Computed example of a mutant assay.
Amino acid sequence: MSDATRDTVSFGYTDVTPTEKTEKVGQVFRSVAARYDLMNDAMSGGMHRLWKDRFVRRVKPRRGEAILDMAGGTGDIAFRLMKSGADITVADINGAMLEVGQERAAKKGYEGLAWIEQNAETLCFADRSFDGYTIAFGIRNVTDIPKALREAHRVLKRGGRFYCLEFSTTLWPGFGEIYDAYSHRLVPKLGKLLANDEDSYRYLIESIRRFPDMPTFERMIGEAGFVRTHVEPMLGGLVAIHSGWKI
C-alpha cells in the first residue's frame, strides 16, 4: 500500500496526514536551505562529501547523457555529474533549495544546468526522457515513496538507471548505538547553534530512523518496475547506494 492510500504517514516520529507531511517537509527545507551543507556536515561528520563522490562514480555519467537529479536543489550531486559532460536537469520540490543551488552555480561559474521545481511524485517530464535518475538524501522526505519510484521508472528510457543515496540502518554491532546517541543528542543542538533551528534538524534525524531498512527499500525499488536491483552499504549500512535498471 502506497503512502497516498494511508490516512497518515510519518513525519519523523509523528504521524500526520500526507498533505501535512508535504507542507511540513517544505517548511523544514525552506528553513535549512541556506545552511544545507552545514546540516549535512552535522549529520555525517563531514563524510557526506566522500559518500557523494562515491555515489557519482557508481552512476558513471557519460557525455551527452540526459540525467535527472531529483531533490538536488543545492547542486551538490549535479555539480559532480556535470563534469562528465552529461546534460543535467536539477529538480526539487522546494524553490528555496533551488535558489541556493543556482546561486552556488553562479559563484562557481557553472553553466548549462537546467533547474526546475518539481514534485517527485508527479513529474512533468514525458515518458522515457532520461538516461539516468539520481536522488541523494531526498527519497526519505517524499510523502509517497512508491509513487515517486514509479515516476522515476516512467521517465527513464529503456536501459536507463536509477541511483539513490540515502541514510539507512547500520548492521555493525555497537556502531548503531553510538551514531544514534550522537545524532539524537548532538545534531539538534548543532542545528540550534549553527542555524538557530533545532526542530528541523531533529526531524531530519527522526526521518532517518523511520526510513525502510535496506532489504525493504530494495524490494520497493523492484516493485516499481526496476530490475537488477542492488544495494551497496557504507559504514555497515549507515548509508547505502541503491540502484536498479529499467528494461
Rank of each mutant, 00 (worst) to 15 (best):
W245R: 09
H184T: 12
G236P: 02
D37F: 14
A106F: 01
R80E: 08
T122V: 12
I208Y: 05
I88L: 00
A106S: 07
F162S: 03
G112K: 04
Y182F: 14
E232A: 04
Y203W: 06
L235E: 02
C164R: 07
V100Q: 06
R35N: 14
F167Y: 11
T14I: 11
A33R: 07
K107R: 09
A240K: 00
L98V: 01
F11M: 04
S207W: 05
A136C: 14
P61K: 01
I145P: 08
N94M: 03
H48N: 12
D199S: 15
K24A: 14
F11A: 03
K192T: 05
E218P: 01
H48L: 09
S183A: 15
I67C: 00
S2W: 15
V32D: 09
L113G: 02
G64Y: 07
K60F: 03
V59F: 01
V187G: 02
I135D: 04
A106C: 01
A96M: 10
T216V: 15
R128T: 08
D87M: 10
Y110C: 06
N94P: 03
P215H: 07
A126M: 06
L98T: 00
R210F: 08
V90M: 02
I247N: 08
E166Q: 11
D69C: 02
G138K: 11
R62P: 01
Y163C: 03
S243Q: 07
D131V: 02
S2R: 15
I88Y: 00
A78Y: 03
V28I: 14
E111C: 11
G236V: 03
V227F: 10
L190P: 03
A195F: 13
F137V: 13
A66E: 06
D144I: 08
Y36S: 09
I88E: 00
T216A: 15
Y201E: 08
M70P: 01
E23I: 09
G85K: 06
T74W: 10
R54T: 09
E117G: 08
T17S: 14
F137Q: 11
K246Y: 07
L149E: 10
T8Q: 13
S44T: 14
W172P: 00
R35S: 14
G46D: 04
D53T: 12
G109D: 04
D76I: 04
L165V: 12
T8K: 13
N40T: 10
K83D: 06
H48E: 08
R158Q: 06
A120D: 08
M82D: 04
R63C: 13
S84H: 05
L193F: 12
I208T: 05
L68E: 03
D3Q: 13
M214P: 09
Y110P: 00
S44F: 04
G85V: 08
R209M: 09
R154T: 01
L50R: 12
G132K: 13
G174D: 10
N196C: 11
R154K: 05
G132T: 06
F211W: 07
E223M: 08
D197S: 12
W51E: 03
R158A: 06
R158W: 05
M43L: 15
F226A: 00
V28C: 11
R63D: 13
S10E: 11
W172Y: 09
G225V: 00
C124Q: 15
R80Y: 03
A152Y: 09
P61H: 01
G176H: 07
V16L: 06
R104C: 05
R80T: 02
V9R: 04
A96K: 12
M234P: 00
K83R: 14
V142C: 07
